[in-house]
Amino acid sequence: MLSVTENSFKCNFCKVCNGKGCIGQLPGMGGVNGNENFILNCTAWESVRNRNINKIKEFLEKNVEDRIPSISIAPMTGAVENIGFEHESDFYDEIIQAMHKVGVGLCIGDGFPDEKLKFGIKALQKIKSISPDARTSVFIKPYTNEKILERFEWAKDCVKITGIDIDSYNILTMRSLVRLEKKTASQLLELKKKVRMPFAIKGIFSEEDIDLLKEVKPDIAYISNHGGRIETRRGSTAEFFEQYGKEIKKYCGEIWIDGGIRSPLDVATAMTLGADCVLVGRPFASALCHGGADELCKKVLELSLIKFAF
């Protein structure tokens, strides 16, 4: 039973989650600068698709039968202030269990206070106890390396991938609450060497970030502008991926991407450009709170049907 009602949930349940219904809602589901990058994330996939339409059709004809799209929930926290849950812990249990039932990858993030991460870890531990092979990952904000390693240690028994959420350095409210660092390549290399599982860098969204990839060479480069919620350069993840995807692939094992992915066409476009995993945040949270696990299942199925994209 969801511990939130439509009246308390901070979402307008728009027919299409495109950033136009929650402008200025922070805390809430919106983003900075009038949701500018949130909106750009959603609209850019069509532009990118139109420029690559023949490649996408060719990709679908050759690959759709033997390649199921890898879809994951994006790491989200702040369920009370941003989503409208009564208790932070309820959100993790409900969405992690629902996502696992429909075969979606499971990601958790952290926040302030530390209980947000610990609730996410507990939710993943429940899944791992019954499904040891579940795809699980944790993304930690760019604290000092000592603090990051402490959090990796908390999560090590229930995740298969550890990552640093470098773009959350630009969350001004977090910077005022805790000590966040603008990570250097040497700091990230130190972390990569000390963790004994695949290592990801989340928040790749500038040429400066690509320079980090060149030196660190993580297992996963995760393209993200934090859903357009934070102060960063103007632009969309789709167009950034289109421009820099081939270069990024030289410096990592896999490419993950989030930001405005709303349809099977968007998923097919991302996969054609070389994405190994697409991640979705707001639409999954909205579906769960609007109609429970059944509606969430429908949303996941909708995104998965890329062979019917055209």
Rank of each mutant, 00 (worst) to 15 (best):
K193N: 06
I140E: 06
N82E: 11
F152M: 01
G274E: 15
T136W: 04
I96W: 06
M99T: 03
M76E: 12
E242R: 03
E181T: 11
E58N: 13
M99F: 02
A309K: 06
N12G: 15
I39A: 05
G228D: 04
T237K: 03
L303Q: 07
K126D: 09
A287G: 10
V64P: 00
T162N: 07
L288F: 02
P264E: 09
L296R: 08
I71G: 01
R135G: 00
M197R: 01
D90G: 06
E254N: 12
L106W: 04
S70G: 08
R51C: 13
L149G: 05
N170S: 14
A134C: 06
V280E: 08
E65N: 12
K126H: 08
S8T: 15
L189H: 01
M99V: 00
K160Q: 07
L40D: 06
K246P: 15
I306D: 00
L172T: 14
L288M: 05
F308C: 12
I83L: 12
L305W: 07
F241A: 13
I204P: 04
D133M: 06
I68M: 09
A74I: 03
G235H: 14
G19V: 15
P283C: 06
E242T: 02
F199L: 05
E239P: 03
Y244F: 15
D165W: 01
L303Y: 07
Y92W: 03
T77E: 14
L106N: 03
L273H: 04
I255P: 07
W45C: 05
G30F: 10
V64C: 14
F199C: 05
L124T: 04
I83T: 07
K57L: 05
R282A: 05
E94N: 13
C14G: 11
L117F: 03
I96Q: 08
I121G: 01
C14K: 09
I121F: 01
C158I: 07
K307A: 08
S206L: 09
E190R: 01
E36C: 03
P113D: 11
L149F: 11
L191A: 01
T173M: 12
D90M: 06
Q243I: 13
N12Y: 09
P283M: 04
C277P: 00
A155H: 08
P142Q: 07
K246F: 12
I220R: 04
I210C: 07
Y251F: 13
L301I: 12
F112C: 10
H87L: 10
A155K: 10
I161G: 02
M99W: 04
I223L: 10
G292S: 14
G111P: 02
K101F: 04
C252E: 08
L60P: 02
K182H: 13
G260T: 02
A293H: 08
G227V: 14
R175K: 14
I201S: 10
N145H: 01
I39Y: 05
E115W: 06
R175Y: 07
M1V: 00
F308K: 10
V104P: 00
S72G: 11
L26S: 06
C297T: 15
E302A: 09
N225G: 03
F284R: 03
K156H: 12
G34Q: 04
K101R: 14
F241N: 09
S72T: 10
W256I: 05
A238S: 02
L177T: 05
D157Y: 02
G227M: 11
